[in-house]
Design a protein around this nucleic acid. Structure first.
Ligand SMILES: NC(=O)c1ccc[n+]([C@@H]2O[C@H](COP(=O)([O-])OP(=O)(O)OC[C@H]3O[C@@H](n4cnc5c(N)ncnc54)[C@H](O)[C@@H]3O)[C@@H](O)[C@H]2O)c1
Ligand SMILES: NC(=O)c1ccc[n+]([C@@H]2O[C@H](COP(=O)([O-])OP(=O)(O)OC[C@H]3O[C@@H](n4cnc5c(N)ncnc54)[C@H](O)[C@@H]3O)[C@@H](O)[C@H]2O)c1
Lengths: 209, 209
DNA sequence: CAGAGTTTGTGCTATTTTTCACAAAGTATA
DNA sequence: TATACTTTGTGAAAAATAGCACAAACTCTG
């Protein structure tokens, strides 16, 4: 165990290990080596060990990691014993897909509120959640203890939606709009830029050797 | 201009610069400094200049970059003069959202085919595209010159879908299923793991200082 | 056109992240 | 219990990425 701050890529990979460990325990596989875990996650054995090394010593020389023990340890480290409430803003194609996805809840991320500006949509119920007007955001965020906001509105209104989320006291934001948002230091902002991912692939087509 | 290989994060950012330059030219802003471009994209001025430096010298000391000139140069570098054909496999919530998104076409990424395994869906038409059976993939990929495949099927069938795409001669893959896929070296694979993005945010909630 | 002010391009430095590589600690076998 | 494996944990090296800082190049102003 060391005390250095943990790089974000490490955190991100821990979720991948955890996901795999959940599968392994379901399959009743009791131990796994860093090498095998690496194969299953497309990462190197050294990477697996180094990542875990940020949080302690979980393995046994010669045999590897106890899958259940490591799973429990990672759940603890990653806060998987807790659940978090999430709001989605912009219930269009993407927002609707997010609302419909059961995988978030399975991972302790409960979408408990949905907001949109369209008169046609407000009041409609999707997957048990009533779409609300933006005006109700501050009240709802407080009442429902929402800590994460997802932005899936068009780019040109994304900044104002971000500001509204922040003034409503959401802690962190996941943004799908293809635009750079400005948020205060303390707010953790993650961007998912789908066009950019696809475009990057197209670059390799255009510049193939 | 230097000859070193271009890091992928650089490529990715060039698309962000380009997007901004398109806005700037629309707004009839003729020149922009690296500093200002950095502010607009949440990047440092040095980063902007370094990134551009991989491809040449585009700026003018004392005044900055000609927006239109740089836009044209980036379009050339990034292959934006060409268009690419894309197939989506798995027309569920997410696949449907991707099909409906007009932004891809605007960026030269044409979704020209959709595949699903569900009898209920095959034959149905979404946004002008008829959903086909997986069996038709090899023929369609060839006929429609599809070079990128998007995987939006459940994780447990994602590998077989990837294999099918590859044997159908798709060049690169964008994968939304939360699982590590194995693909040949020459295939560029990008993963978008939405749960992981959200979970990473929840980590910072669980471990806030 | 001289002097003040801007901004680029880039070598160098710093930081972050990954990989290497091996002693130490365990397991398995007989 | 000895011997041959296997696998961990981790410093130290390497690679990848980002940031600094400044001479050189250009603009602007009076
Ligand atoms: N759908 C995709 O596959 C895709 C791909 C890449 C990027 N994106 C990005 O994701 C975002 C959402 O995409 P989408 O396809 O779901 O768009 P969409 O048009 O289907 O949905 C946008 C929704 O936001 C709502 N909205 C508009 N202004 C609002 C406001 N001020 N407050 C609250 N709600 C508001 C609209 O009523 C609509 O329901 C966009 O920024 C888009 O660029 C989407
Ligand atoms: N929707 C989300 O917000 C979200 C979030 C995170 C991750 N994901 C991931 O994205 C993927 C798609 O999610 P979704 O919500 O669209 O799921 P979905 O269930 O709505 O759609 C999946 C589609 O794939 C089709 N399918 C199943 N097996 C197939 C096969 N062998 N060949 C072709 N098509 C097949 C199904 O018929 C269905 O239409 C999943 O891997 C999911 O884990 C989705």
């Amino acid at each position: 165990m060391n005390n250095k701050k943990v790089p974000e890529p490490v955190i991100s990979r821990l979720f991948v290990y955890l996901r795999e460990l959940i599968e392994l325990t379901k399959m009743n596989i009791r131990t796994i080596s860093s090498g095998e875990l690496g194969v299953r996650t497309n990462l190197s054995d050294a990477q697996v060990r180094k990542d875990l090394g940020y949080f302690g010593q979980f393995g046994v020389s010669g045999s590897g990691y106890d899958t259940n023990e490591l799973k429990v340890a990672l759940e603890e480290i990653l806060g998987k014993d807790k659940t978090w409430n999430v709001a989605v803003v912009g219930i269009g194609h993407l927002g609707g897909a997010l609302l419909a996805y059961p995988g978030f809840k399975e991972r302790g991320l409960n979408i408990v509120a949905a907001f949109d500006s369209s008169k046609r949509k407000i009041g409609k119920k999707i997957k048990g959640i009533i779409i609300q007007s933006i005006d109700e955001m501050p009240k709802t965020v407080t009442n429902k203890k929402i800590s994460i906001g997802i932005i899936s509105v068009p780019a040109k209104v994304a900044q104002e939606v971000a500001d509204k989320l922040i003034s409503s006291r959401v802690k962190h934001i996941l943004n799908f709009a293809p635009i750079a948002l400005n948020v205060p230091e303390k707010i953790k902002l993650k961007n998912v830029d789908l066009s950019r991912e696809l475009e990057t692939l197209s670059y390799f087509l255009a510049n193939k050797k």
